[in-house]
Amino acid sequence: MMRRILTSLLIASTGAGLLGLAGCGEREQTAHYEDGRYRGKPDTPPYMAAPFGGDVMKYENAMRTRAQNQNEYNRID
């Protein structure tokens, strides 16, 4: 009799433990985000245009010089 009670208690506790572990199998709640990739037409960089002819350094120097034109402290002394 005692043995049967112990067996049933063991089965019940094992079942409860398994049920409790089932909670650990929760699925991810956040959406998986995939980075989009540009699907339009390719664009040519500005330094490929006629004034620069593909010379990146020439383009960057021109941009830097042009940007410094916005600094009026360069014009006064």
């Binding site: 490929m48 245009a49 004034p51 941009m63 830097r64 042009r66 940007a67 410094q68 916005q70 009026e72």
Partner: peptide
């Protein structure tokens, strides 16, 4: 940019409040 110029709004700004170009500059 392909003409070697910066945005018209920044270059037109009379008080040079608006600046455009390379962030470091």
């Amino acid at each position: 940019l392909a003409e070697g110029k910066l945005p018209a709004c920044a270059e037109m700004c009379s008080t040079k409040a608006l600046l455009g170009g390379d962030g470091d500059v």
